[in-house]
Design a protein around this nucleic acid. Structure first.
Lengths: 342, 342
DNA sequence: TTGTAAGCGTTATCAC
DNA sequence: GTGATAACGCTTACAA
């Protein structure tokens, strides 16, 4: 009959050692306390044998450190965020951290609750892609001393650290390209209007038009959500105009999918009847009915950087004074969804 | 100067009440202990005012219950798993549980570590879509009393509870359809060969052929991974045969994408030169170069059921004796990636 | 080189 | 109606 070991206490008992010694060996402080090699080996062996795993709750309670990070994103089924979540999880784990995943569903009331939830879990830090409507709670959390970093849906002028794509450049590049292909009547289907990616992409859109002497037509800047629905609806509406645009700039990959759906349903074709550029590259982008011209983002880098900056905030009080604001270049991936407009 | 409240102790002090009373109110046991309405209101108000959030570590340590579930999946960037993760997170949270997300990256050594990690976090239960190579550790964990449920990559005959799609039916339906369209030389690009979804889908494939008097050609059953790479490579190899198949059955959406890539690169077309059916429906399936015929799965239901069954295991020792094995029907979504072969 | 004991923040048991 | 206190499993001074 083998004794069941649940505790460091049980383990110590089995070994005939004190809890302290066992704890020291388990935590790799053997040589620091000059614990004999033999004792060390015995402990490690027994730990493995009895399948002992230290209780992180007790450990966290004692150390006020849980080796856990919180991640809040608006929609994990959006492959953009799934990719980011993957790189964050991987990087975090490689550094010894676990990840509590929260999907806010683009609901800022829920988002607020989720932050409180993560706080109650005593996570060591939070990575958040906010819904982008109400920041007060996030700012408050950060100012209270909780290490936190914002990704993608960044918030400027609030004193929050963030890592995001150069959305202005992405929007600007896309529209400049459309103009260079002869388009002048270019619609823009937005994501959440108040969110920074949308604001910046639209700013890039406007500036590209203006720099070519085209006055932005406000009736062509439409939509209010990053999802497929919005892309579909706005496209149908755009095409109900007496004089529809010749090109659409979709501010997310999901919006782009919605555009395609609407276009197909109307019996039209991309790019013959309408040109399209969509933000965010996806594995399927190249294989769509018309291979899509997209604005690629450094998702992997964004995730890795977020984790690493956050860990520095966690580990280094001094570093926390440094407000990290990073912007990652985008790249236009030209395929065949834009035709030359003559 | 407002006192900072970190503790239930601090809160009690501020209120001039005992810790016990405060704890009771916070946990909604006010009436059980006949705590006066006024006291109750004061406590609740102060808690809100001082932004008090109970420490889940301490709570978990005391109650041996963390209100936390662990989720292990092989690849969150695969939209199939992203969708499942979303439904699991949502359902779990609605029931008061948080989710620790782990991506095993299809690595069963890592998977084993991740289980130990979740154990050390004292999660109340585990939902796992295993890599599908080595089950021993999972079985051991389950047998040790940890509530656990397997999804998608199920393991039969091991006494583990699971919820999965009817992969046999899905494979059978797909191939029956291909045969009904006149195809006889049908290739099958597998996922991980030892994993149950692959085994079952291939069994469905074989039986469909046999039931039509076609003897399965082993050289047409190829591949070893659910990813895009595998789909691409195997397609290139299949087409290097002197007599390539007229149809391909891809066992995942990612494999399907790889097939498309290879086909395009070879200057061929779907379905003119090769017909294709791919497992798992995705938002983009309808918008691919050739709208894809797919086998749809009940992802949302799978996630919700997994959480609910797991929670019953957690809450009800009796129920744990009942081995839940659920199989969810698939549905063939016919589009235009299969042509009539004459 | 090893051990003793206090304390992390919470809840449950028992008392008043 | 409310309060004091032990205990959950761990780490870490402080002792020896």
């Amino acid at each position: 009959m083998v004794k069941t070991v649940n505790d460091i206490r049980d383990l110590a008992e089995v070994l005939g050692l004190s809890i302290t010694t066992v704890s020291r060996v388990i935590n790799g402080k053997a040589k620091k306390y000059r614990i004999s090699d033999e004792t060390q080996k015995r402990v490690l062996l027994a730990a493995k044998q009895y399948n002992y795993v230290p209780n992180k709750l007790a450990r966290g309670l004692k150390l006020s450190r849980t080796d856990t990070l919180g991640l809040i994103i608006p929609d994990i089924s959006n492959p953009f965020f799934a990719d980011i979540a993957q790189s964050i999880e991987k990087e975090a784990r490689s550094k010894g951290y676990s990840l509590i995943l929260c999907d806010s569903g683009e609901d800022h009331v829920l988002e607020k609750e989720l932050i409180a939830l993560l706080l109650s879990h005593k996570v060591d830090g939070i990575i958040i892609a906010p819904v982008g409507t109400d920041y007060s709670y996030i700012v408050q959390t950060y100012n209270s001393g909780m290490p936190l970093i914002v990704i993608d849906r960044c918030i400027t002028d609030m004193g929050l650290p963030y890592i995001t794509s150069d959305n202005y450049q992405g929007g600007n590049d896309a529209v400049n390209y459309l103009i260079s292909m002869g388009h002048r009547k270019i619609a823009c289907i937005q994501g959440i209007p108040k969110s920074m990616p949308t604001i910046e992409r639209v700013r890039g859109y406007r500036d590209a038009l203006l720099s070519h002497g085209i006055h932005p037509d406000e009736s062509l800047i439409v939509g209010d959500n990053y999802n497929t629905e919005n892309g579909y609806k706005q496209t149908r509406i755009l095409f109900s105009m007496e004089n529809p645009p010749t090109a659409i700039f979709a501010l997310s990959n999901l919006i782009g999918l919605g555009v395609i759906k609407a276009v197909e349903e109307m019996g039209l074709r991309i790019p013959e009847n309408i040109s399209l550029i969509s933000f965010d590259e996806q594995p399927y982008s190249a294989f769509l009915g018309t291979p899509m011209t997209t604005v690629g983002q450094k998702k992997n880098e964004m995730g890795q950087l977020a984790v690493n900056v956050l860990l520095r905030y966690i580990g280094n009080k001094e570093y926390r004074k440094k407000l990290v604001n990073m912007t990652l270049k985008t790249n236009l991936i030209v395929r065949s969804s834009v035709r030359k407009n003559v």
